[in-house]
Structures are given as C-alpha cells and as structure tokens.
Design a protein around this nucleic acid. Sequence first.
DNA 1: GCGGATCAC
DNA 2: TATGGTGATCCGC
Length: 377
Amino acid sequence: MLLQKAQITEQQLKTAQVQVDRMASSLEKSRDLSRLIVHVDMDAFYAAVEMRDCPELKDKPMAVGSMSMLFYSFHIFVRAAMPGFIAKKLCPNLVIVPVNFDKYRAVSNEIREIFADYDPHFQPLSLDEAYLDFTDHVEQRQHWPESSRTHQYCSGRLATGRAPSYKNVNELTEEQDLSPVLFEDSLSSSPSLPGSRDVCDAGAKCEVFGTSVEEAVREMRFRIEQKTMLTASAGIAPNMMLAKVCSDKNKPNGQYRLPSTREAVTDFIQTLPVRKVSGIGKVSEKMLNALDITNCSHLGQQMALLSLLFSETSWHHFMGISLGLGSTHIPRKKKHETFKEMNKTEEQMSLCRELCEELAADLKKEDLKLWKYLPER
DNA sequence: GCGGATCAC
DNA sequence: TATGGTGATCCGC
C-alpha cells in the first residue's frame, strides 16, 4: 500500500480531493440529528455475574473462562482473550471461574425486559449489550406524571433470602442477600436529587427521575441495577456509531451524552482514536497508522488519499466516520428473533418449524419458509 | 457462489 | 497440557 501511495501523483490527489469534497457536502446535507440513540453495555458482564453470586470472589483476583481462554477479568495483568494458563503464570493466585452461559442468558432476559420498556424494537448485539432508540420514549415522557418516573430501591432483595454459596449458583431464581459493590460508586450514583423523595409505597425508598434523555437513561440503568444487582454503562448520541463510542466513555457504571448538534459531533470526532470505532480492528488500525492516521481528524484530512488506496466501500465507511455519521435508525428485529425473545425453547421453535413446513407443503409454497411469520399468527 | 480475511462478542 | 466459537461483511476469484 505504501508503494502504491508513492506512485500517486499530485494531479490524482487533486481530482480525488474534489470528489471527496463533493461527497462530504452531500453527506453533510443528509445529516440527521433528530434521533436519540442509546447504546447500553453491562459492565464486565460475565465476571460481574460470577462475583455477584459468589461474594468471596470479590477480594480475589478472578477471571471467567478456562485454562484455554478467558472472557473477562479485572486483573491488571490479565485481560480478556488471554489463555488461562498464561494468566496463571502471570498471576498464580488467579481464580478462574468456569463460564456459565445459561446463567448469563437468564440475566440477559431480565435486562431485556427493561430495555423493551424504553424501546420495544431494541436491537441486542450480544447477551450484555444493545442499541435502543429513545426518541419516542423521551417525547412521550414529557407528558408523564412524576409517579410514572418514580422507581423503588429494591431493598427487599437485601433483607430476605439467604447467603448464596458457591454450590448453588446455578439456582437462578434464588434470592441473594449480599450487595454487589463491584465498583466504588456503585450504589451511590445519586442519593438525593432535588425533588426526589425518601419514601413512597409503604416506606420503600424511591427515586424520581426527570424527563430528559439523560434522566431516562439513568432511570433505565437504575432499574437494571435494582433488578439484577449489576451495573450498566450507556452512551447517548444522534447515531449508532457515536452511541457505541460514548458508552465506553464513562464505563464502568456511568453514561455519557453527546449533544445533538453538528458542532458537538465534529468536536467529539476530532480527538477520537480510529481504533475506538466499531468496525476498525487491529488490521485496519495498523494500515491507517502506517499512513500516519491515528485519530479521526487525520482520517478526514487524508480522505483523498484513502479514496485512492482503499476499496469504495472501505473509504465510504471511513468518510462516514470522519464526519461523525452513522445509522440513525435501529434495524427492526426479524420475526424469528422476536419469537426467541418470547422465551420459546428450541424444541418449541423446531416444532413450529415442522408445523409450518407441513402447512407450506399443503399450500405448495415450501419456499416461503413460513415459520418466520408464525409469531404473528 | 465460495473461501479467506477482518471484525465483533 | 493448554491460545475460542460463531456469525457477519467484504473482497477477489
């Protein structure tokens, strides 16, 4: 690529620059700042779940995974995607907790129920993160009475139940009795806001949330923490690309809002390292670094060059990033995904498929794959 | 259309 | 002892 670069003439660069500028201004016209996109991400999900269910782990260096592969770790020398046996050499005291996907899935279903209250069409990316469109919720929320924005501290959880032991962590429905203070400021996010009340509903402690997006997102994170005893971080921005970057900004247990103005977006992009953008991985980063591009302002400055060196889809992608553009509407879930979220088991789903295939055969329309549409019927 | 590379979790 | 499993997209052939 550097050889190719050396052969590019001034003239080529100039004509490329004209094309790039024309494209940039046409993209600029299509910029949509009207949406409120939120990216939510649970903090160190697997490790946090295991620590919640086994508080003795809290004081020990721990990781989740196996001797072959670690998924999450809090340890300073030990990182996710590191083989466990190497981690053990670096940190002999490391406790490696085996993964328990069924449990993470169960917790995931709990948080998704909350997501659905803010955006029924939210898009899960994995068990612990999702994109939500808060635009409609925030608009409706303006007319909501305070009572609809009031949520209780789930103190009952702390008072009842018995101490979990390491052996019963598989019993998902069991009440836990220990508070999971995984992060210093975990439970002190906002003890008494102006207007918040100490009591409601038979003396239970409550918190009242405002009508802004920030307050709505804070409320959602509060509800997640009360329901699961786990914390989440969130990013609020006018599109998905930016929201994802923002959710990382105040992690753990925090949120960051990028205001919906062109100026705020372009300022934000200037100092953003290219590697932070979803879709730019190890290899792309290296290639860009070789062209002296490390952050997104360089990306914009070198766009003419990039348009000559990379494929069309690649440099169009870079172009979008350098202007702070991204998807402003979250793709609707496919019908069969909605069905899965209704907690249907695989057996139930395959039974439905069979039934549909029979039906389709009857109709002589086998190729329609009707099972996809079954949830509605 | 398919396999390899890249990327994400 | 030992370095994952899966799905998506893009690209070149």
